[in-house]
Amino acid sequence: MRKRKKKKIGGMDIFVFLVLTLGGIIILFPFWNMLVISFTTQKEYMQTKLLFFPKNPVWDAYKALLGDGRIWIGFRTTFLYLILGVPLNLFLTTCLAYGLSRKDYPGRKLIRGLILFTMLFGGGIIPLYLVMKSLNLTNTIWAVILAYGVNTFNAILMSNFFSSLPESLLDSAKLDGAGDWKMIQRIIMPLSKPIFATISLFYIVDRWNEWYNSMIFVRKSSLQPLQLVLRSIVIDSQVKAKISSMGVVAVEEYAFDTAIKMAAVVVTIIPVMCVFPFLQKHFVKGVMIGAVKS
């Protein structure tokens, strides 16, 4: 973009600045409030009307949370989802996207139709549950990992990218006698780094946030992902009972419910918060790739 000639600050600038800043505050404030509460004692929480900053920050809620043990189970399970699930997602999606992007082979229309149909119609969770049961996968993490293999939307995004690669490049490779494998290796893979980055990120986010399938397929509490651990701590609020039963002394004195709940949310968000600002542009790029096509 070129520079505007006039750089005077007008009413519009002030208005836009104020409205967007207010929006930013409304979004950030609940997170800040959660962080503050996770560091306060029950006494301070009760006594202070407007708590914007903890006077004497304490780590008690975090100690109680990490001593509880469930959060570690959550991290372990989610970590397994990521290192086993995301490569599977990428492998299957790339396979499909390559197939969909090639133009001339028998059966292409049928395959494309069958894949696109799944975006319109699905069996829902119950028959999938019965399938998992008959494969003896329920109560294992494999049920969750395999239930989410290809996100058809991501596959289409990737295949659109493949088809947008310059035809002439592929043709000249073909003239040089390169087969499909060589084309994938030598030409498509290196040129497709940006789309791989974006799609990987989409899958990583999905896996990180995965909870519904686990809730249905896996009943074992030792295999709960982070999100469900968080849900059971915050929304079903069983913290107190759990901690008391684990023999932590004088729970009431230092570890009050709300602080532990908020600490649990903080612990779950922190990893996302640390990487998100650096990756945001890749997510946006994903939308741009989708939008440019249309």
Binding site: L92, C95, G99, T118, G123, I126, P127, G149, A155, D180
Partner: peptide, 20 residues
């Protein structure tokens, strides 16, 4: 190349659809 993806769709999407 397509085969793994198609097998996945068959087992985890189309078989459940039949379950309807």
């Amino acid at each position: 190349v397509l085969l793994p993806a198609l097998v996945w769709y068959l087992i985890f999407v189309y078989v459940p659809m039949g379950g309807l």
